[in-house]
Computed example of a mutant assay.
Amino acid sequence: MKTTAYKENKQTLIPKRFAALLMVLVLLLGVCIIASLLFGSRAIGLADIMDGLFHSNVDTHEANVVRQRVVRTMFSIMCGVALGVSGALMQSVTRNPIADPSILGVNTGAALFVVTGIAFFHITSAGQYIWFAIVGAMITAVFVYSVGSMGSGGATPLKLVLAGAATSAVLSSLVSAIMIPRNNVMDQFRFWQVGSVGSGTWDSIMIFLPFLIVGLLIALMTAPALNAMLLGDEVAKSLGVRIGFIRLLAAFGGVLLCGAATALAGPIGFVGLLATHVIRLIIGPDMRYVIPMSALTGAIILTFSDVIGRILGSPGELEVGVVTAFIGAPILIFITMKAKVREI
């Protein structure tokens, strides 16, 4: 009786905690959006924000700056959502609490295919980048998972991380080998390589939007099955879950989101790791809650990091990829030490 009552109380508590957390995250995202519009190399007041947002006939420099920051902020939110959900899917599929596109080498695979496209196929537009990046991310994800699955025990968390780190190192060397002898490629690639949301435009947002929608739909559709798989493959099979198909579909959704964001913003690391890990600590492993909360948290982390980069780098800016790496690397070390890389 006590066990049943405990389970019922726990099931009631999670939706309440979810609702409270949702309100907090929406509020934090709103604060980040306002900060993103206010802060930068030039000081902007609230009156300027109102002119830039609601008075199209106002053509002052401040109003135009606000309009540019609106695009940048929307692009940052979309990339943060994509990376947050991608991290949630990758952690669930691999049962690895520190899985992240950057740690598993997926970002580096996307980068290799982009620099290859620039060097040998002369690609220049965001629409071309995105296809090369997605193909590179998918091939790398399959390769890392295959290598990590070798030997006894299958794809353990530690083996996946080691396979991702080794693959990332090799692919980074290939990127340098292609880029260094070609000055035109280096000039075009070096700004993209750091990871920045400053290059976002309405065109890139419209190119990104279909990939984001498809990836989010896949994540939400697979959430119940991923929950069943957390109980173990045998239990999931007894519940009618097609384990191989769900794992493949969820991995495809994660790589699609990561590849599209990487193509347009560059290889930004640690967002998916931080967002999903924080959410799991607060509300548990239920993917029905983890996925939307990771989306919001990823948007908050990336937008906040972009604001910090603009403030610290003023009158220029510090690219957001540098800021997320500076924040994420110590946290990754802490998580690894405390969690001992246990499976989810």
Score class of each variant (00 low, 15 high):
G266L: 01
V255S: 00
A219G: 08
V241Y: 06
G253M: 08
G269I: 03
W202I: 13
G254E: 07
G244M: 06
P267S: 03
L216R: 01
K237F: 13
A223K: 09
A228Q: 12
L217D: 06
A260C: 02
V271S: 04
A228G: 11
P267A: 04
L248Y: 13
G200E: 04
L231N: 03
C258D: 07
G266W: 12
I213R: 01
F245N: 09
L230P: 01
L248P: 02
F211L: 01
T222K: 06
G200L: 09
A228D: 14
M221Y: 11
L217R: 03
S204M: 10
C258L: 06
P224R: 05
A263L: 05
F245D: 08
I218A: 02
A225S: 15
C258P: 05
I243E: 08
M206F: 12
L209A: 13
A225F: 11
V255A: 00
A236V: 07
V235T: 14
L256Y: 03
A263H: 08
L264T: 06
M229S: 06
L231W: 04
L209N: 09
G253H: 12
I218G: 02
L216N: 13
T201L: 04
L264H: 01
L239V: 02
T222W: 00
L217C: 15
A236R: 10
L239G: 06
D233M: 07
S238K: 11
A265G: 10
P267G: 07
G244E: 15
W202C: 08
V214N: 07
I205C: 10
S238Q: 10
V241E: 11
L220N: 02
D233W: 02
T201M: 02
L256K: 01
A223S: 14
A250E: 13
A236N: 09
E234V: 11
S238E: 09
G240K: 05
N227L: 12
F211R: 05
L230S: 15
G240Q: 02
D203F: 04
F208V: 00
E234F: 07
M229R: 06
A219Q: 10
D233A: 01
S204V: 00
F270W: 12
G240D: 05
F208K: 00
G254R: 06
E234S: 14
R242T: 11
K237T: 14
L220D: 01
I218D: 05
G253Y: 09
V271I: 15
G244P: 05
I205F: 12
I246C: 06
F252N: 02
L226W: 11
A223F: 12
A261H: 07
L226I: 08
G266E: 07
F252P: 05
M229L: 15
F252Y: 09
V235G: 00
P267H: 03
R247D: 11
F245W: 15
A250C: 09
N227W: 14
G269L: 04
S204N: 10
M206Y: 14
T222I: 09
V255H: 03
G215S: 02
